[in-house]
Design a protein around this nucleic acid. Sequence first.
DNA 1: CCTACCGATCGGTAGG
DNA 2: CCTACCGATCGGTAGG
Lengths: 199, 199
Amino acid sequence: MTEGSKTELKNAQVKLKIKLAAARLFQEQGFPATSMRELAQKVGLEASSLYNYIKSKDELLIEICTQHSQTFMRGLDEVLDSSASIEQKLTAIIEQHVILAFNDPSIVTVFNDEWKHLPLEVKSEFIKQRKHYENRILKLLESGMEEGTFQKLDPKICLYSFLSALKWVHYGYKPDKLDPKTVVKQISEFLLKGLMIRP
Amino acid sequence: MTEGSKTELKNAQVKLKIKLAAARLFQEQGFPATSMRELAQKVGLEASSLYNYIKSKDELLIEICTQHSQTFMRGLDEVLDSSASIEQKLTAIIEQHVILAFNDPSIVTVFNDEWKHLPLEVKSEFIKQRKHYENRILKLLESGMEEGTFQKLDPKICLYSFLSALKWVHYGYKPDKLDPKTVVKQISEFLLKGLMIRP
DNA sequence: CCTACCGATCGGTAGG
DNA sequence: CCTACCGATCGGTAGG
């Protein structure tokens, strides 16, 4: 390993540290309300020194959002390409969301709430990706309705309600120390079988 | 009617106009990213003139959030005090959320997403109110489980999933021109009976 | 309701 | 990696 690549490695580590601190601040205060001075303080640098590791404040948001977007996409590929039943696939999608929300709550929050502050160009690409992601799950719901596994309801309303229902795990109020596995099981039961008791 | 009260009436109208424009901007860009210059332009004034009608930028956010909080609370009182069955009460809560989201999407979005920018004092009161609101619905879920209407699941997970599932109606992507009544019916079916078909 | 303006803070750069 | 600093913009006020 040359001296040069060692430096690059170190730089990448510092950049990662900056990115994680940024995710936490963006989560707590939102992207526009977070200043580079504040971020610098969190990682023990002066504001101007940050620019040795990153290009701009925007870059941080872009990398957080797009990396997470790719993680989601890859996870969805894996689930949909499997030979599992439709019901199993849907449970796997729930599991994927919950585990990501447990592991990286800050990043998931930024991904969910702060994408609207992306620069215009990147934002429209982000929306396109998300639309694509949603459409693939929509197809899954529709085929489940066709094959008689799922109730015949408005697929889009189901889709949005389904995805929204998963969007609380990453927030502060984790119910009393529940482990991810239990949460997955309970949410799956709630979404697949409904609140009302079965006759 | 005196001249003075006429002026007050006019002032109140302008203030309302400012508040609605603010809600729309806060929704689109978030509270910190919205400038008073921008808001002034939307209502056809100079930035400094806004301060004849409002005290501060914070005041706008405070009034939007607390007014909506009170609307929610009053609606919940009405539902819970009625003699309806638990199932009917839950449907009525869904209906309340959906109708508010259809009528005032901007205000609902600000209420949901921008409350974290409230001044510290007001914010903790806001969180307290919301907690109270959540607890009353939690009790409803728990009593439904006890009396055998609802599945016995973790009540808090149900509560959060239930409330989250209602949080997409106010966003841009209204599925193709659906009317509120249909949305209420579909969401209720989805949440109460679940995705899987009944045996 | 506007013009003129304030101090503070922003993201980011130059230069070393 | 820091000191020193830039132009731009912020929320808000004075005074009329």
